[in-house]
Design a protein around this nucleic acid. Sequence first.
DNA 1: CTTATCTTTGTAATCATTACAAATTAGTAA
DNA 2: TTACTAATTTGTAATGATTACAAAGATAAG
Lengths: 138, 138
Amino acid sequence: MNTQKQTVKTLQKFGVKPSAQRIAIMDYMTKHYIHPTADTVYSGLVSKMPTLSKTTVYNTLSLLAQKKAIRELHIDEKNVRYDGDISQHAHFCCKKCEKIFDMPIMVEFKALEANGFVITESHQYHWGYCPDCNKALK
Amino acid sequence: MNTQKQTVKTLQKFGVKPSAQRIAIMDYMTKHYIHPTADTVYSGLVSKMPTLSKTTVYNTLSLLAQKKAIRELHIDEKNVRYDGDISQHAHFCCKKCEKIFDMPIMVEFKALEANGFVITESHQYHWGYCPDCNKALK
DNA sequence: CTTATCTTTGTAATCATTACAAATTAGTAA
DNA sequence: TTACTAATTTGTAATGATTACAAAGATAAG
């Protein structure tokens, strides 16, 4: 459904000049809502694109996040993770299995511009135990 | 006002056995609400406690966070930061000057225990431009 | 005092991420 | 096409925060 052409359009919409690598990476991100690390993205693409460099993956994910085509998550203390789903939602990280789950936003964000702060991005992170791990703990 | 004895009591309240190093570090955290990194804490203490090891600072901050005597912040992508103020509040990181500010939480978090998730900790992070940097940008 | 346990220390690794310069690709104009 | 310029990609080598680990030191109980 997400043809290459649509991905090109998406990139352009966010002000990112398309290239084979950028298309592949953006495409991966919109098809894998798994909050992958740069390394995971690289592993998922390198077989189809053998010349792909890890540096390019790092740079491109960073660029896409800066252009707000994807989101950069800091819920995992070990690695930066990226989310191709840019709709408003919170994240949950299980302290046992370390899986990351999407969560509804419970708190509405309101810019505090009155105080002179300009908020361009807000994240809500939760930690705890996911249903499976919680069950296993009992 | 925060005597050594009070710090000992605080540590005990959170289930942390007091020691000279732990008291010094906890004391520092309750007196410096500056969201310091482990390195900053080390630098702030080593002159008064010359044998202090950086490893101890890392381990102790981690322990204190695990026991919920302090909070571990992941709003700064480069370093883990710690907050001695454990009252409910959000954080803001200026993308220009990289200073970290406290922010009010706008709504209470509610655990999603109904779905089987057990939330033990929630953080709300904002990024953008602080009043000073915002003014300077214009 | 002795033994067992807990804590601290210092050094050496780890490893995700970044810096950098060379190589490649794309874009443009003649 | 060709030549020139700019943007992108690549691979390797650093960076630097954090952790692993084992030895040394402190503490508590008997």
